[in-house]
Design a protein around this nucleic acid. Structure first.
Lengths: 340, 340
DNA sequence: CTGAAAGCGCTTACAG
DNA sequence: CTGAAAGCGCTTACAG
């Protein structure tokens, strides 16, 4: 007893061919946009397709031409973190936009940040997708880079180890961008500038901390005030408390993500600091978090949506068999708001 | 000139059969867990599969048995909203969990909240998925309900129009839950209780507003203070400002989502109200937003993760050809924190 | 319990 | 420009 309703079987290529009075080969050609079809045949076939509401069977097509027309969106993050940081929203938005004009669909693979689940690996290597996009603050692990020979993969964010030359990725120059953000604070006359960094095992975390240090060193300021905020709002708050305890006299803080900055701002106000009079704050990302908190944040803007699009375009190029630049570093800039 | 590297073709059923010295039928049986296989053959085949690292070709399998082993996650929301509200994170987390033990993969379809894109419809009806899960505050539209005959669909949230009997969905009793949240405020002795509702075109928005009104009416209190917050943080802030302007004397507010409550709390503090002394706040969801803001929120807890899981289970049952209860209403409860 | 054979709905050289 | 035919890698009655 199968409760599923019986459905009329969808029309096949065969049916269209019969309706149009041509062979299946011909229908296949028009479906796939081949030029070698005479005008009248084209018209007849198009009409038949329209009339029968024909939609090609994806499985049959995949089997025949060895393409799945699917792309995996691999997210090695905790679900809550992935959904909790607006930065990801922008990236995914960009990816969706970039893939829109193509016929590829996106498949979601939420997996552990440490090592991909067996199901994910099997899925990726089982010929279920034509390529993969990896989006994560952890993506520097490039755990899939080894699969680069098996499957075209594009990462969001540089590889953790520079020797992984095989990787394709799009990123910003996090070090230079963080240096710029910190320099902005220095130019404002601040001298006791702390930083709240992302986790030390993530390239974005490492590089932004390095950029802060470079600016501080360059200005002859002490770079002793660093606390790890782990790219979460709660972590940002925690780090801010720690920094305030260590250095009640700090007059500025460069925070490696807007989300963490939101947490930091709460703590600063809780402790009676006026922003920016007492403490100036510069964030990073220019995500919606920058403008949705208690104080609108001055921040280092990175073009997240465009980065997602660029990832999609790079993968699409790879899938076309082209040879795109493997590294795309996009520009950043400072956006000044109320927190400085 | 195709730049894509040549790859060794993956092993097929045929290869495994040869290696194990049996027919393809037999290998197919063990791959699919049929019981009608003798122990020694089972051992031999299993060994061959292991040795060759055989992974069944999904397209071939789909073509033969007319199952895609894919489920669409349809999200009729703006990308930023989808990613901006932690409620969705929990639902998707639950869905992922619920699908984990199965062999189904999840396909992501971000689409317009108003009408599904043509690409989405083609995808869903083109035999690319075996079923769909629709997650959205707008899901009451049940725009896909009409496809219910073509494709098993499970919604998060009740249909907007009660006559859509065909729908499968999981939800909470939003009216009762909102009434409970409001009653909690009444029992605290508050009398001038406002509400910030979700949008009026979404079932969750409508029902929670109705529940608030029911509690107010039941207590003989005036239910004149309602403002729409559109389920966003910014909307919550806007609504709070409006309510405060209209009724500076309000002493409590029931907010239809924690995310909106976060915005409302900011405004209340900005306007010098002490929470909960001057104004008590009750949210809805018990999402991470309830505890990540300036004040930990008392809120109506709904089991979002479990709801996602329930959606997955219901769809899986449908796909098995079973006949599950079409409606699953899950329990809610009050969680008391600092805002009351 | 096991195998031979047909069939799922396409694409793709190969002829013409 | 068009068609006949083989083949993609499985599953599934049907025999035995």
């Amino acid at each position: 007893m199968n409760a599923a309703p019986l459905r009329r079987l969808p029309p096949t290529l065969e049916a269209v061919a019969a309706a149009a009075g041509v062979s299946r080969s011909t229908v296949s050609r028009v479906v796939n946009g081949s030029t070698r079809v005479s005008p009248d045949v084209l018209t007849a076939v198009t009409a038949a397709i329209e009339e029968l509401q024909y939609i090609p069977n994806r499985a049959a097509r995949s089997l025949a031409n060895r393409q799945t027309m699917a792309i995996a969106l691999v997210v090695p993050e905790e679900t809550t973190r992935f959904f909790g940081d607006p930065y990801f929203a922008s990236i995914v938005h960009g990816i969706t936009k970039g893939l829109e004009p193509s016929d590829y669909v996106l498949t979601l693979q939420l997996t552990s940040p440490f090592s991909p689940s067996e199901k994910t690996v099997r899925y990726l290597l089982g010929g279920n997708v034509d390529g993969a996009l990896v989006v994560s603050h952890h993506s520097g692990d490039h755990f899939l880079a080894s699969l680069g020979k098996e499957l075209p993969v594009v990462f969001g964010g540089r590889p953790l180890r520079p020797d992984e030359q095989t990787s394709y990725f799009v990123d910003v120059d996090n070090t230079a961008a963080a240096e710029m953000g910190t320099q902005f604070l220095i130019d404002l006359g601040r001298t006791r500038i702390a930083t709240i960094s992302g986790a030390a095992d993530m390239p974005a975390g490492i590089d932004r901390a390095a950029g802060w240090k470079r600016a501080m060193d360059g200005a002859g300021l002490r770079s002793d005030l660093l606390a790890d905020g782990d790219f979460t709002m709660a972590g940002g708050a925690r780090a801010m408390r720690e920094l305030l305890d260590r250095a009640p006299d700090l007059d500025a803080v460069f925070v490696a993500s807007d989300l963490m900055a939101t947490g930091a701002v709460s703590v600063l106000r809780e402790r009676g600091r006026v922003i920016p009079a007492d403490v100036a704050v510069v964030g990073f990302d220019d995500s919606p978090a920058a403008t949705s908190g208690e104080v609108e944040l001055t921040t280092v803007h990175q073009p997240s949506v465009e980065m997602g699009e660029a990832m999609a375009h790079m993968l699409l190029a790879l899938l076309r068999g082209e040879d795109p630049e493997p590294v795309n570093i996009m520009p950043t800039r400072i956006v000044v708001r109320a927190s400085t």
